[in-house]
Design a protein around this nucleic acid. Structure first.
Length: 222
DNA sequence: ATCCCGAGGG
DNA sequence: CCCTCTGGAT
C-alpha cells in the first residue's frame, strides 16, 4: 500500500464550493453573529457605521453611547455645533471628516428625505460619507434588505486569504462574492466573517491552529 | 494614489 | 516603533 498522504481539500473544491463550505462552517461556529454596532434606529446605525471607518466597533460603541444621548434626530445632528460634534467623535479617528459627514448627511436627510433614512442603495449613496459598505450595512441590518455583501477590511482580507477573490477593489470583491453566495446569506456571511476576523483570522497574527477553515484555506500557515 | 487621524496590540 | 481597526472622498 502507498503511504497515505494528507488530503488536500483546497485543491478539490471549486471557488464556489469553497465559499459555500466556508459560510456553512462559519454559520455553525458563530450562530450568534450579528451587527456589533450598538443602535436603536436606522439613523443611529448610519451614524455608528460612518464612525466605524478604520476603528474598532468597541470604540464606536463607547462614543455613540454619549452621542446618541445628545442627538436624537437628523435635524439635531444637522443643527449641531461642529466643534462639539468633532469632540464627541474624536477618539474614533478621522474625526473632522466623520463629524462633517454626519452633519452633511443629516442635512441632506432633512432636505431630501423628510429626516428619515431612504431604503435604496441609489438614495443612500447620495449621502456624504456613505459608500457601498455603509449602505449595505444600513440596508441589511436596519431594513432587512439584502442589498449586497458588506466588504470591510475583515471581509476583504479574509476572502482574499481564502482564495474567494483575487480583487483588491472592494466593489469588485463584493460583486464576486455575490456570485458565489445565495442572496439570503449575504448579510449573515458578512457578520460571520467580521467576527472571525476579530476572533481568529486576526490581521496581525492569524490563529490558523484554531481556525475551522484551515483545511480549505490556501493561505493556511502552520 | 493620497489624505484623513486616534487608540490599542505586539 | 510599526501595524491595524466593520472607509470614503479627492
Amino acid at each position: 500500500m502507498m503511504p497515505k498522504k494528507p488530503a488536500n481539500p483546497t485543491a478539490k473544491l471549486s471557488v464556489a464550493a469553497r465559499a459555500v463550505e466556508a459560510n456553512r462552517r462559519l454559520a455553525a461556529t458563530y450562530p450568534e453573529a450579528r451587527c456589533a454596532l450598538d443602535h436603536q434606529s436606522p439613523l443611529e446605525l448610519l451614524v455608528a457605521t460612518i464612525l466605524s471607518a478604520q476603528c474598532t466597533d468597541a470604540r464606536v460603541n463607547i462614543v455613540t453611547r454619549e452621542l446618541f444621548r445628545r442627538y436624537r434626530t437628523a435635524a439635531e445632528y444637522a443643527a449641531s455645533d461642529p466643534a462639539e460634534l468633532e469632540e464627541l467623535v474624536r477618539s474614533t479617528g478621522f474625526y473632522r471628516n466623520k463629524a462633517k459627514h454626519i452633519r452633511e448627511a443629516c442635512s441632506l436627510l432633512v432636505r431630501d428625505f423628510g429626516g428619515e433614512l431612504p431604503r435604496t442603495m441609489e438614495e443612500l449613496l447620495t449621502l456624504p460619507g456613505v459608500a457601498r459598505k455603509t449602505a449595505n450595512v444600513v440596508l441589511g441590518t436596519a431594513f432587512g434588505i439584502a442589498s449586497g455583501v458588506v466588504v470591510d477590511t475583515h471581509v476583504g482580507r479574509i476572502t482574499g486569504l481564502l482564495g474567494l477573490t483575487r480583487q483588491t477593489d472592494p466593489v469588485k470583491i463584493e460583486a464576486g462574492l455575490e456570485r458565489l453566495l445565495p442572496r439570503d446569506q449575504w448579510i449573515p456571511f458578512s457578520h460571520r466573517v467580521i467576527l472571525h476576523g476579530r476572533a481568529v483570522c486576526i490581521a496581525r497574527r492569524p490563529a490558523c491552529a484554531r481556525c475551522v477553515l484551515a483545511d480549505i484555506c490556501p493561505s493556511r500557515q502552520d
